[in-house]
């Protein structure tokens, strides 16, 4: 039997052809020295503060202005309501260890905390490393609620209520997660009139190249389409139905808020229990505390009602503006979090 040419060692599929081998043997052509860290990198001073990384413009972020991304804004507002001091940093998804914004870099422990550490902890191998030399682990958005609730607001006790276990809040949260989110995605990403706004917020900061921008815009739109189709469970994106559903959702939220200051204030039963265990003497009306749910509602209503957003297709913005209760709710939070007039 004649031997097939494949058997011979020189012509296996894994052998690199000699022209290619010669070409690659020239590399690396030049080796550059390592470049310095970018100026924006956190220095020693900024490590003494909590920093929240959000979608924002480089001019808005240092002033702590509201983020233009609903999820980021929700956490930004929640942390502000909780009374936590932090700086906002304009960032993007690639910067986040989990791939999603926001995330919070807690401040490095100060010398006082270092001194107060338990001696036996210092005995361990890990304990010998000073705390401020250890890498500070970022807090992902999933853990931010815990982070915010664990913060003691000082004189007035905790400033935010806990909606964990309030079933009605969980149920109404699905209104925000499905109906309002779908309408938001449609309005910002798919409505052709809002292309300019979408470009200003998410596309233009990425690159100056026309091709890169067109490609980013295209993939953002495709992702939004897929997300809407998945959330509505339909085969077709029916804009009329999406806005009608969002209208119903805003109406339901407005009804359930009614004349109250905060959502589900009367249902935070857990709050009084916690007060009984602790040393808090005075009975605080639980309705006087906002919660994560309020921040979530605000994150949509504020961005829809905010004049700076420059919506061209105003369908969703008008739906949000229809409810006086939601407009009042938005103004109330804006007053607390950004008491000095924005801009």
């Amino acid at each position: 039997m004649p031997e097939s040419p494949r058997r011979t060692g020189s012509s296996s599929i894994f052998t690199i052809p000699s022209p290619l081998r010669q070409l690659f043997s020239h590399f690396p052509l030049v080796t550059y020295a390592a470049s310095e860290l970018p100026v924006r990198c956190p220095d020693e001073e900024s490590r003494t503060k909590n920093t929240l990384h959000v979608f924002s413009s480089p001019t808005d972020a240092p002033r702590g202005l509201p983020s233009y991304n609903p999820t980021c804004l929700k956490w930004q507002v929640f942390l502000r309501l909780a009374g936590i001091e932090f700086e906002t940093v304009a960032s993007n998804n690639h910067a986040s260890p989990t791939g999603v914004l926001p995330f919070l870099l807690p401040r490095a422990p100060t010398a006082a905390i270092e001194a107060a550490r338990e001696p036996e902890e210092k005995g361990t191998e890990l304990g010998r490393i000073p705390l401020h030399h250890r890498a500070v682990l970022p807090v992902a958005s999933g853990k931010l609620e815990e982070f915010g609730l664990s913060y003691d607001g000082g004189a007035g006790g905790k400033r935010v209520g806990d909606v964990e276990g309030v079933m009605r809040a969980e149920v109404y949260q699905s209104l925000l997660d499905t109906r309002i989110r779908c309408a938001w995605l449609h309005s910002l990403y798919l409505a052709p009139e809002n292309t300019e706004l979408l470009g200003r917020l998410y596309v233009n900061p990425i690159s100056r190249s026309y091709v890169a921008r067109a490609s980013t815009l295209h993939s953002l739109r495709r992702a939004a389409e897929a997300e809407i189709l998945r959330a509505t469970g339909t085969a077709v994106i029916d804009a009329g139905a999406i806005y009608a559903a969002a209208d119903e959702a805003f109406e339901a939220l407005s009804t359930v808020l009614g004349e109250d200051d905060w959502f589900f204030g009367s249902e935070k039963g857990t709050d009084t229990k916690a007060g009984g265990e602790g040393a808090t003497e005075k009975e605080v009306d639980p309705r006087s505390k906002p919660s994560l749910f309020d921040a979530a509602v605000f994150s949509y209503t504020h961005l829809l009602l905010d004049g700076d957003m420059a919506w061209q297709d105003r369908r969703l913005a008008e739906l949000a503006a229809q409810s006086p209760a939601l407009v009042r709710h938005r103004d109330r939070i804006l007053d607390i979090c950004w008491s000095e007039p924005v801009k």
């Binding site: 969980e170 699905s174 209104l175 469970g233 959702a249 109406e251 939220l253 009804t255």
Partner: peptide
């Protein structure tokens, strides 16, 4: 009543989001 209608809408969204 309006509040019942609000609940109806919210629970509808809840059932779809978590049930499906």
């Amino acid at each position: 009543a309006p509040i019942q209608k609000a609940h109806l809408i919210a629970y509808t969204a809840f059932i779809r989001k978590h049930g499906a």
